[in-house]
Every structure is written in C-alpha cells, then in structure tokens.
Design a protein around this nucleic acid. Structure first.
Length: 173
DNA sequence: AGACTGATTGGCT
DNA sequence: GCCAATCAGTCTT
C-alpha cells in the first residue's frame, strides 16, 4: 500500500529517518493543474546542538526555533541569498534534528531542488501530514541500495564534517 | 550599526 | 579553478 507518511515516521532519530526517506515519493502541488512528484535520491542528516554543522549549533535562535518543535514539518531557509533549502524536521520536541533533501531523481543539488519545487519562506513550518501543497508518500520503490558518504559544504565543522551522514540511493543493476 | 559568512550554483577567466 | 550573485543570521564594534 502507498500512502502519506505519518507523524510517527518523522518523530524518530534523524539517523534512522534520513536513510529511510530514500526511495520515498515527494509530492508538491504547485497549483490545481501542476503537480510535481519525484523520488528522493539523496538526503543529509543534521544532528542536535552538538553537531557543529547544524544550524542548531548556536542553540535556539529565531531561525531554527522550528527544529525544536518536533518532527514532521518542513524547514525552509535561504542560503547564499538565493536558494531555498528543503529540510524535514525529525525527532521529538527539544531535539533539533533535520534532514536536508539534497537530490530527487530528476533534480540533483539541494539548491536546484528548492528552485524546481518553487519553494519559498512561506513553507517554513509546513506540516507534511496536513499540507495540501507538499507531502511525502511511501512508495514501492525498493530496488536500490544505500551508500553513506560525508556531508557536503560543512568543512567549517571540524570533526563533524567527517561524519558519513549523507545517504545516497544507488540503483541495483 | 557594520562586517562577515554560509547545508549553492553557474558563468567566466 | 575562481568568483559573483545576494541576504538573513550571527558576531563584532
């Protein structure tokens, strides 16, 4: 059966949720006549306040308050003044974790994903379980394996930059 | 109040 | 390979 992922799916540890999002179907209803559906092929996990690569590294701030509210919502933010990054908040209250959607089957690159999906700051806090414009469905896409790699663009995070918290979907042959 | 920088991409030297 | 685009958040004065 295929259906929308429930709150419980997201309210687990980010290192469990991030790899499990691979192969799931992201649905974005832009308008009544335009629906984008694509398979998630690359995710990246960001841990709690101790993860020096995460926005939560400064503690609770205006931008990342959402990360402390519990899993199942969308966390969008602007980077380099031009790209909206799509993140899914995971875990439970006061555990600031999130998953960056880095690539879809038809769109590689986190910045491009945000552009293709026409995301903007109005998606900040959008509930994946209730929204009528964006959600994630389970899928029957199973014929793949998962590769773990180091995260991208987080060299400033010292030892944390070496963690293999990026998960890539690789098709089986 | 002002400076600096980033979970990026694309274009030019 | 290098750098501009472009702005919100964080840090410094």
């Amino acid at each position: 059966m295929v259906g929308r992922l429930k709150k419980e799916f997201f309210q687990r540890d980010v290192l469990v949720v991030a790899p499990q999002l691979l192969g799931k179907k992201l649905v974005r209803m832009v308008s009544e006549n335009e629906i984008i559906e694509d398979i998630i092929t690359e995710t990246e996990a960001y841990g709690g306040e101790e993860d020096l690569a995460s926005h939560a590294r400064f503690g609770k701030t205006k931008r990342n308050t959402l990360m402390y509210e519990g899993g199942g919502v969308v966390y969008v933010y602007l980077i380099y003044g031009m790209y909206c990054m799509l993140n899914i908040i995971t875990s439970t209250k006061n555990k600031p974790q999130g998953v960056l959607i880095r690539s879809l089957k038809n769109t590689e690159g986190s910045g491009r994903v945000g552009r293709v999906l026409k995301l903007d700051k109005s998606f900040y806090g959008e509930d994946l379980c209730k929204s009528s414009r964006i959600w994630i469905e389970d899928s029957n896409y199973r014929n793949f394996k998962i590769e773990e790699r180091t995260r991208v663009g987080v060299d400033y995070a010292g030892e944390w930059a070496k963690k293999k918290w990026r998960f890539v979907l690789v098709e089986n042959k």
